[in-house]
Write a protein that binds this DNA or RNA. Sequence first.
DNA 1: TGCCTGATTGCCT
DNA 2: GGCAATCAGGCAA
Length: 192
Amino acid sequence: MEPLGRQFYSQPTIKLARGLLGKSLLHRSEAGLTGGLIVETEAYLGSRDPASHASAGPTNRNRAMFGPPGRAYIYFTYGLHWCFNVTAMPKGVGEAVLIRALEPTEGIELMQRRRLRNDIRQLASGPGKLVQAMGIARELYGHDLTQAPLWIAPGKVVKAAQIAVTPRVGIRHNPEAPLRFYIKDNPFVSRG
DNA sequence: TGCCTGATTGCCT
DNA sequence: GGCAATCAGGCAA
């Protein structure tokens, strides 16, 4: 499971959101290795996107998005959940791709223990769920995703015809923008 | 300082 | 389908 190189992250955010579908997200922790295929993503377009945390410019919370591409932007929301994003675009441009769902492939037993759920469909079919299942912690904020312990590797090829495009889930501003991407007929996509 | 809202989830009716 | 949990960021005062 060799990491994808930096070059992969040097593409426009929407292309990156599409390109991440089918890739493998892996995390090696003290408890063990977990991983899964990315099956659902959303693009957040910075200053031209009022739904993005980056729309008003850099803050202490969102600073990872304004750094180099291919890093982890992790944020806390609703008082109890964490969400994981892949940063996009060069330094100074605050864009990112939210990872919304995974098809579990590695460390399924460990994910089941972390999630307190046995149903494999309930392990990572949502942005908060996958962070909990993989044990992604705030210490990984800004982590370079081209290396361990948290990295992205080639998974399976996803053809353009297999990708569905819809508006993003659960946002108030710019709700019509077709910036959510997922693999058609994949049972591990979040309900939305 | 105080109030409101949120890129969510899971339990309850 | 309704709604609580629970807190950080943003903005008004």
